[in-house]
Design a binder for these strands. Sequence first.
DNA 1: AATGAATGAGCTTTCATTCAT
DNA 2: TATGAATGAAAGCTCATTCAT
Lengths: 225, 225, 225, 225
Amino acid sequence: MRTTGPLRADARRNREQIIETARAVFAEQGPGATMDEIAQHAQVGVGTLYRHFPDREALIHAVLADGLDRMVALADAARSEETWAWDALSRFVHGCAELRLDLLVSVAGAQVHRVAATPEIGEGRARLLDALDRIVAAAHGEGALRTDVGAGDVMGAIGLLVRGLPTLPADLGEELRERTVRLVLAGMRAHPAPAPPGTAMTAGELIRRLSEHGDEQGDEQKKDE
Amino acid sequence: MRTTGPLRADARRNREQIIETARAVFAEQGPGATMDEIAQHAQVGVGTLYRHFPDREALIHAVLADGLDRMVALADAARSEETWAWDALSRFVHGCAELRLDLLVSVAGAQVHRVAATPEIGEGRARLLDALDRIVAAAHGEGALRTDVGAGDVMGAIGLLVRGLPTLPADLGEELRERTVRLVLAGMRAHPAPAPPGTAMTAGELIRRLSEHGDEQGDEQKKDE
Amino acid sequence: MRTTGPLRADARRNREQIIETARAVFAEQGPGATMDEIAQHAQVGVGTLYRHFPDREALIHAVLADGLDRMVALADAARSEETWAWDALSRFVHGCAELRLDLLVSVAGAQVHRVAATPEIGEGRARLLDALDRIVAAAHGEGALRTDVGAGDVMGAIGLLVRGLPTLPADLGEELRERTVRLVLAGMRAHPAPAPPGTAMTAGELIRRLSEHGDEQGDEQKKDE
Amino acid sequence: MRTTGPLRADARRNREQIIETARAVFAEQGPGATMDEIAQHAQVGVGTLYRHFPDREALIHAVLADGLDRMVALADAARSEETWAWDALSRFVHGCAELRLDLLVSVAGAQVHRVAATPEIGEGRARLLDALDRIVAAAHGEGALRTDVGAGDVMGAIGLLVRGLPTLPADLGEELRERTVRLVLAGMRAHPAPAPPGTAMTAGELIRRLSEHGDEQGDEQKKDE
DNA sequence: AATGAATGAGCTTTCATTCAT
DNA sequence: TATGAATGAAAGCTCATTCAT
């Protein structure tokens, strides 16, 4: 009946803890992660999870919304802390990729639309685009960003790059994603060729790296059956 | 296993039909697609599906393996039909994106490793890398591809670009992916600036496009409940 | 794909078995009976139960509809087999009470309306009223039934008498219901006083009967805790 | 337990408020009503509810006991205020039906026995039968009540009539119950035919009344989903 | 060999009960 | 003391897999 003053402290901490955990668990376990598992990792009972989020969809929605908030924060930080808009852009894109929103985007499958079609998500997206737009405009002003690349393009690219390569061993997947991010940034860059993405990942190198991981993985897999 | 001659035609057609359908259904419905649903779309009973693929994992495995085969075919066709290696590379990357292996990569969640760690998949990957490597080598020879970008990089980029942007309306998602693919290719290109990806997708444009779709989506959503 | 020819035999038997069991279990265990319990008693897996009835509400609906069918059959049999319409009416009312639709009516609580507001139930009710109406008309013709009592009154009375007295031991509850049924019939009867309901159930007798049951019940109750 | 003097007033009011609310909620929502719902309607927190009644069973027990008390009061009032015993009896039966103990009897389902087997309930029942017995004896003396109908019969009938007809629209259910009560009373009456229950409820009339309600009900049903 | 009904383990969700505030 | 957030056992329901037809 009170306007939610005192008790909220615990509840709020709990809520945030759950969202944070959910992102992590979804990223690691994939879309199949169970509610119980998430609750467990968040150190709460399932009941508590359900008190905060009436159903699975609501939780996913919250994680998505929270992810947008973080991206906005990321964009703002990048813009205010970097001297050059291009550096801010680069930092933003790299930062987004590290948020590991990964598999989440595919969690709900066909229902994603419903989850993402919320006014709250829409507004978050708008705020993000707004923040990003300033960086993009500045980068255009600097002459560093191709003029035929807009904030929408950056968002689209991030939507793809933000995920993982779950079929590959974790570290290799990370590395390849990093390199792809750099390629995209290179592709966005105006005239002067951007910093090269390091040494090429050749076919041979990739195969060698893959075979290295072959053995380690065999161990921990029987437990699922 | 190899002794049945005549019946093979029907069986094979059935098997391929199921794989084809499975890819489509996974791409549309997401990882949550059920075996019954796939069987239904493939116009067979679940029993038949299980006759061909002992369990869900086997089906996913088959779809992945088949996807690799298609990519190899794509690479070969591109190489033999295009005069310039760069064009072959570009055609290959664009073609892969259209295979709509989309959500499949995340279907199995945590089990993906197990599914992808099969010798058959490993071999398929090797063949693909091999085919791709020839294109990459030729492109290097042409001077069109940056020397610090290898076949492994191309594969990594494809792994990310091959998916959709399920939170966006289908056509908008497609367009943004297309543009990102072009950006990546631009980033891979050596000195001479590559063909620009058209007109920039600005923040305003993106938001406008999103709001256009707001209404259409409301209709088809009740059926899930 | 076939028009449901051969396999249906088993399925139909199963379906009927489940409905039959559900009525019995609801009557005995009360509205709290679980789906698993019903499935168990019906000798099928829960999955089978759910294949036939998508959810709890559907099952309740089916039991209600089936109950109506039985009542119609009861009315028809009574009318064709009894010489006097009054006897048919009496037999019908007594018979309905024995169907033990008991607690079912309250199973769904507030949702009962939704369950009972189906066209199928409505039609069943209409058929029942129709069958009953003929008996009532004949009984009126015989001069045995008060003219200020109609088929609707009979239905209303049955709706109340059909249930049990779950707070009492089973046999005592049965006996009292029987007696109440006779009282209602007596109240419906025209001029000549109907057969008396036997010896009075006095307060002392009722209390004595209740105390008899006190001990027997203590045993089987600990298992619930 | 009996040592607290001053606070008792508030506590007692609270306790009674909860019992009263519980009866109403059980009557409306059916046996599925949750503790939270009852607490909410009673304007208290669940914690408070549990302070008064250690568990659900205790609450049900209290409502039952309270119901018995009210019936006793009803019987006493009827006896002292009516000149004729028959009128007292009639008033008592009608009054009980209005208590709306309705669905409560089936709330506990299989556990009803345990709840109703309490000494307190037993004693309440005894008191009620005692009070009722005096009315019945007087009615016998008046020659208005059939001698083969005892207080136990009246109790049994009330147990059945006290409930509602939840599958019907509220007002129609009420009307039919009223008419059934009158029929039972008519059946209990000695020689002289009792006052007729008004105009017959014919099958046609019942169906007409049912169809009238068809539309109104559709509205309030979505809120459950 | 193909079919789809049956199965039941396991996941989502609810709610009686407890307990920190 | 009253409150309502947290808890987790248990219920409803789903769907991968099996098996009778």
